[in-house]
Write a protein that binds this DNA or RNA. Sequence first.
DNA 1: AATTTGGCCAACCGCCCAAGC
DNA 2: CGCTTGGGCGGTTGGCCAAAT
Length: 395
Amino acid sequence: MGRTPCCDKSNVKKGLWTAEEDAKILAYVSEHGTSNWTSAPRKAGLKRCGKSCRLRWTNYLRPDLKHDRLTPEEEMLIINLHAVIGSRWSQIAAHLPGRTDNDVKNYWNTKLKKKLLEMGIDPVTHKPFSQILTDYENIAHFPKAITQIGSFNRDLRNTFMSKPEVSSALEVNLSSLLSHSMVAMRTPMMESVQDGLINGERSNNNCSWDLQYQLQAMGLFKEATNCTNLETFHPHFFSEGSSSSSSSTATAMQVTWPIPFACEEQSLLQTTPGPPISWNEFFLKDAFLPLDQQQWQEQQDIQGLLSTGSSSEIQVHDEIQKIELIDEGNKNYTVEQVGYDPFTDIGKSYPGTVGDEAGKIFEGSLCPNDSFMESIFDQDNQISWEFPSNLGEPF
DNA sequence: AATTTGGCCAACCGCCCAAGC
DNA sequence: CGCTTGGGCGGTTGGCCAAAT
């Protein structure tokens, strides 16, 4: 013997709500509250299912809801949270005051997912497609895959750049999101804001919104997993790098997107108190990689980022130089080199990077190995980029 | 001007889990 | 203890509307 049905399913109205129905719901809530939706249709004089009434209230009529367009900051937060916890819309919406899970879900499906795709980023794993292809190659031992990365990224770039309205709207947001995935890993800055963010507060210091969202996302993950020490998850993430005010050397691990992870975390997790969790719930890569390929994988991470992250930067900084390169087969390439580092968007010049043009060169087999960047990225057409030991160091 | 196409988003569907009976 | 619903959630659909053809 269970409960009585909430409504007569054969006699309920469906479809869009009228203003009159909305008024009835509002009147019902003001009198009876929101604790019992089963009786709501009857008491409100509506031919709707109680569940439908609850949904109408939750997603539209609640007085605390915002009905305006999501802000760039909210976009950032959604992306970063999604990178950490996936499509748990209600949890994401809980960090966006005035937004519902439906809002977030719709915005993701109609806007953000598309934007990430156009940026060459897989919206599921939040990794550059080039890296996923590389991973695939690594799994399948498919030697040609890596040589196709360049054209793949070029196609993505062309798609992106052919839609100026998209790029103009995105260029700051997503490129800086990419870039700050590195900056965010500097320990002191992180420590200064981490606690407040995890507690849902905004920091008053000058660190970027992007960083705050990244940290907030980690805070959410921390909450979700009951892990009290994120450093346990990834010692590189917190212990490596340098002071936020210095420009000292970054490590290869610092550019992993969106948050560093490695096989070693799998073993760490086994000994971490709390509920059993796995990074593989969120990320796909490492489950397939042997431990001895970690260093190589870190390099692939960097290459993947560089090979997809520059479409917008070209417009952002407008500091384009042209250099000519001749590959091993005497094939000429003209490279539009941008004075901008896709990893850092803090107003400093990084003449040594070219973003996805690296993919173009890569495609041409100029340097078909992990050191290919060394011979390219320099404002005077000279080799100056020591990959990957000083990656991220400003000029 | 009429038609087609695509974006957007409100709302529905179906599943899961906790709790009532 | 098992059946059932309520509530919550994520996935999906369908209709509206503006832009494109």
